Computed example of a mutant assay.
Amino acid sequence: MNPTRMGDVTMFDSMLMDGLNDTFSGQHSGWHTEDLVKLKGLSREDQDGWALRSQQRFAAAQTAGKFAEEIVNVEGGAIAHGHPIGASGAVLATRLMHSMQRDGLSRGIVTLCIGGGQGIALALEML
Rank of each mutant, 00 (worst) to 15 (best):
H98A: 09
G117S: 06
A93W: 02
K66E: 08
Q62G: 02
Q62E: 14
A60P: 00
A78S: 15
G86R: 06
G82A: 10
R53K: 02
K66A: 08
V72H: 12
G65T: 05
G117K: 05
W50M: 13
I79F: 14
E75P: 03
G65V: 05
G115S: 11
E70W: 13
A80M: 07
N73V: 04
I109E: 07
Q55T: 06
R102S: 06
R95S: 14
S54W: 04
V74N: 15
N73F: 06
A78M: 10
L96F: 07
S106I: 05
A80L: 03
D103E: 12
G76R: 13
K66M: 03
M100F: 06
I85W: 09
G76K: 14
A87H: 13
Q101P: 11
I109W: 01
M97P: 02
L92I: 10
L52E: 02
V91T: 09
V110S: 05
F58W: 02
A78C: 11
A90L: 09
V72R: 14
Q47P: 00
M97H: 07
R57G: 07
T63C: 09
Q62P: 02
C113F: 04
L52T: 02
S88W: 09
E70F: 12
V74C: 15
T111F: 06
L122K: 12
Q47G: 00
G115Q: 11
N73G: 08
E75I: 11
C113V: 06
T63N: 12
Q56C: 09
A64V: 04
A80V: 06
L105T: 02
S106K: 13
R53Y: 00
N73E: 11
E75G: 10
